[in-house]
Design a protein around this nucleic acid. Sequence first.
DNA 1: AGGGCCATGTAACTCGTTACATGATTCC
DNA 2: GGAATCATGTAACGAGTTACATGGCCCT
Lengths: 183, 183
Amino acid sequence: MALEHAILVSLLEKPGSGYELARRFERSIGYFWTATHQQIYRVLKRMEGDGWIDVREVPQQGRPDKKEYSVAAVGRAALSGWLHEPIEPESVRHDLAVKIRGAAFDDPAALIREVERHHQEHADRLAHYLAGELRDFTGPDAPRTPDAGRELQHAVLRGGIAYERMMLAWLDDVLATLHRLRP
Amino acid sequence: MALEHAILVSLLEKPGSGYELARRFERSIGYFWTATHQQIYRVLKRMEGDGWIDVREVPQQGRPDKKEYSVAAVGRAALSGWLHEPIEPESVRHDLAVKIRGAAFDDPAALIREVERHHQEHADRLAHYLAGELRDFTGPDAPRTPDAGRELQHAVLRGGIAYERMMLAWLDDVLATLHRLRP
DNA sequence: AGGGCCATGTAACTCGTTACATGATTCC
DNA sequence: GGAATCATGTAACGAGTTACATGGCCCT
């Protein structure tokens, strides 16, 4: 539902091709929304058909030509409309929680490795976000000029950081529980 | 991908009908997985066809008859297999984060109401989880006998609690940011 | 008489994932 | 020579959402 809106926001921040959008969804946008290039190309087609975005063919040397998309007036209006209508808080989906409750009917100790893997993955993500924060917001090379857009991006990033820290603490808790259950 | 496994876990904890499963997915299971009754009935059909679960028609008085499902040996094996294969940590999806970044191209102050609504909703969920924790795990009426299944359920619930607390703190942060950006 | 709960489902649609496909350039 | 990056897509399938449908019981 919100993929088209996420694309609009990203294109407003900076116009770009489907490929570039896919890369952004792997990086900065990735900590609150994910999408593959297949999905993105499909949605871009539809958005173009609906007049939400404009395309510009950009010939390039040494690499394939690309289509650069930018937000049209209709798209901006669509985004504004969406921003003003209320949405429901997301419901969470945690495969791992299903596994943890399922472990009661299997071998709980066998889950330890899996939980440790997840712990590592979240630690990596946290490190990545913290590096980004230092680079773009709190480090010495970060811009000092006040900018609403940057402030809001930073607030979202802080959300990603808080999420990863919470997950790490909880996974520690789960690991302790699993160890306690061992014979 | 994990809905069928979530159903298996729930049916192992206690057999029940599609309707009862739907209710559980609104309550206890709801803090790590959601599903509507339409989805559940569809998947139950498939699982029954695959021999994962057994059905028993239960005639009732004063209410419609129901089909009580329980996990068959094949289903137990399927769950065990799934528990032993690694899964990737979930990627997050946050509509609200899209909105916050989008607010830079609209009126940031208009988002305050929306963020406050989400704050309220998460506060409600937290209160609900804490009440459940007191009732089932930490209160005076909670069972005292050591039980691996209960320990694991409690660990998952602590995850839900940690998540809601994190969200509340982050939404406070976002609100402060939005107020700071006001003229 | 009307609303809510119990109980089961079908149908249509959108969204997301996985696999397949192509082709040039750059770097090691 | 082979892998990685840039760049765009199609096709098939599985998962999730929304709307519609039925019908009896219980309570006010």
